[in-house]
Design a protein around this nucleic acid. Structure first.
Lengths: 343, 343
DNA sequence: GTTTAGCACTCTGTTTGTGTGAGTGCTAAC
DNA sequence: GTTAGCACTCACACAAACAGAGTGCTAAAC
């Protein structure tokens, strides 16, 4: 991208910020006024024409003001945008929320999504910690009734999963003991990526006649390991799609996209950078071609465990939202690292 | 409601069913054809005029066909509607889904909501079992790390809740023993409605210096008891709101209403009948004045524990949806009763 | 009394035409 | 490089004209 003169940068910034604030195309006169009439509107028009040629601005029609193009937003985010601090409201909200953290990672991320949706008026997406190379730290069996029990699996990277199991034979002390022996020998300390079909087969072979009573428990453990590896998404503030008039045309397709789940997971998985801002067609999915996605990863210990971020229109208050999301991801990482990755 | 002649009933049914199928106002000629020209369109027009006078039909404008009024739908649901069996697709889907039931009530209800949303193309709402008069069956403590543990609470009415707790003092065998003693003495077998602030105060007073280490656990138990009493809602298929053009005008307000949560809870709580169909303004909230809600309660043992149902436009395929929802509620009740209310 | 044919009438949705205003692009002068 | 001036373009709002669907009513037939 060729260097822009300082004035052109200023004009671009004014147009983008005004457009973000009002949603209306910005005309040369308005810019002129905002610049204190330092130059005339005709001069600004010349510069604007150049910015259009560079692809940084667009015109809805010949006789309208200018609006930022996707490339314009990109230039703004990369070069022009001021780096704001978090607002007081954001900070307060996040602080209060942190205090309610009990220690359950999935709940934390779900709540974080709610907060973010409220703060941003966008659809917020958060993923619970997942790590395909996590290690099993412990597995517990909690008898609930004669034939049902809960299995709780704690893994590295701040991951905690549980499931209820039904067993035909009555669940008694003997079964519990066999269960704990198996866990001790085969599961504890092992990477969840090891718990494959062949692994379970070898295990089953070595169990002899205990296979029959153990199989629902083994299945449950395998499922939980799968859950440890699998990103689980929380969608919040879907109603906010309707808040943004520029999305109303796509609203249906967008909603549908969000509810399909898998593409969204793929998208989050594909992000390389810790903070990812994708504007319009920079997004991998064409359903998002009029949307911006801002996602940040959070880390538990030294591993990236999940993401949190938003999906909104391209017309977004980038300068405020980006720091908010960054901060939130940092807080999540810190909390999870402190709580569950200790000892 | 005065008795209608058989022909008027037939005309009303034809109009409603055609309108449900097509969404277009139905004219006299179309009805005439559907009746095999047994009578002329003029005759039908006369009858239609009478039905309008009775408030069962409405005209969007003078020169359009007729559409059902809310009273018309009500008459149809109460008197005319055929009682369909479940379709094969519905049955299959529900059967497959049942097989995935692990024993976790909250998950079951969440999944049931998803299924219902898919089957009906409406917003599905399901509430996890809750019962303000449930009894505590057992409480378990599952140590996770040195300073965190999970508490699992099993109650009657098929209710299972869990939470993670952080404790400053290290969680060791001594603490676990104290915990279980307290549970044995004060909580097991007690009704959750007893676990009030004064009750906790008495308990705290009797604990002496153990109060300090026990307090996070006691708080957690109190929270869990609260959760047992509290209806937790699962919303599914919110994107379906946009499927129905007649709701698109209210889409925003409706979405907002759904996300507010509390009014929805109140609505479900206020239902007296086991199956509740509220058409348009029969709904307690004005946000739903153009919507129909169909909800069925499910019972665990002999107590109503929660509800499942849909929110959609008034133009709904009542004849198929009502049996589906009824059936689903029945299945949920049976599953939960068998699994968790045993022994 | 009920049913029917016939016809004028009403209302919606679409198309076409006109005017207005905001904002531009270009040219010539500074 | 900057500015004033002016013709030009386009979206939007409003009005008029038109076609089509379906009704309501009347008078005759059953």
């Amino acid at each position: 991208m060729a260097e822009l003169t300082e004035r052109k940068q200023l004009i671009l910034a004014i147009i983008i910020e005004r457009f973000i604030a009002t949603g209306e195309p910005v005309g040369s006169k308005a810019i002129c006024a905002e610049m204190g009439n330092a130059v005339s509107s005709a001069t600004i028009r010349n510069d604007m024409a150049d910015l259009v040629d560079l692809g940084l601005l667009a015109q809805p029609h010949t006789s309208a003001g200018r609006i930022p193009s996707q490339a314009g937003y990109r230039y703004y985010v990369d070069n022009l945008m001021a780096n704001y601090e978090l607002g007081i409201e954001e900070q307060e909200r996040i602080k209060i929320w942190i205090q309610t953290f009990s220690g359950e990672p999935d709940k934390l991320l779900e709540k974080a999504g709610s907060i973010l949706a409220e703060l941003t008026n966008c659809v917020a997406v958060s993923s619970s910690p997942a790590d395909s190379e996590a290690f099993i730290k412990r597995i517990e069996l909690v008898p609930l009734s004669n034939h049902t029990a809960m299995i709780v699996l704690l893994a590295t990277s701040g991951i905690l999963k549980s499931a209820v199991v039904r067993s035909d034979p009555e669940i008694n002390v003997d079964i519990a003991e066999v269960f704990y022996n198996i866990c001790q020998t085969y599961f504890n300390g092992r990477s969840v990526s090891d718990i494959s079909v062949p692994f379970i087969q070898t295990l089953v072979a070595s169990l002899g006649d205990k296979v029959f009573i153990m199989s629902p428990f083994l299945c449950a453990i395998a499922d939980l390991c799968e859950a440890v590896k699998t990103t689980e998404l929380h969608l919040k503030g879907q109603n906010n799609i309707l808040n943004h008039s520029e999305l109303s045309e796509d609203a249906f397709r967008l909603m549908d996209f969000l509810h399909r789940g898998t593409p969204l997971e793929n998208m989050l998985d594909s992000h390389k950078k810790s903070l990812n801002v994708a504007i319009g067609t920079e997004n991998a999915y064409r359903e998002l071609k009029n949307s911006t996605t801002i996602f940040s990863k959070y880390s538990v210990g030294d591993r990236d465990s999940g993401s949190i971020g938003i999906i909104g229109p391209t017309r977004l208050d980038y300068a405020h939202l980006i720091p908010t999301i960054k901060y939130l991801a940092g807080v999540i990482g810190t909390l999870l690292t402190e709580t569950l990755d200790e000892e």
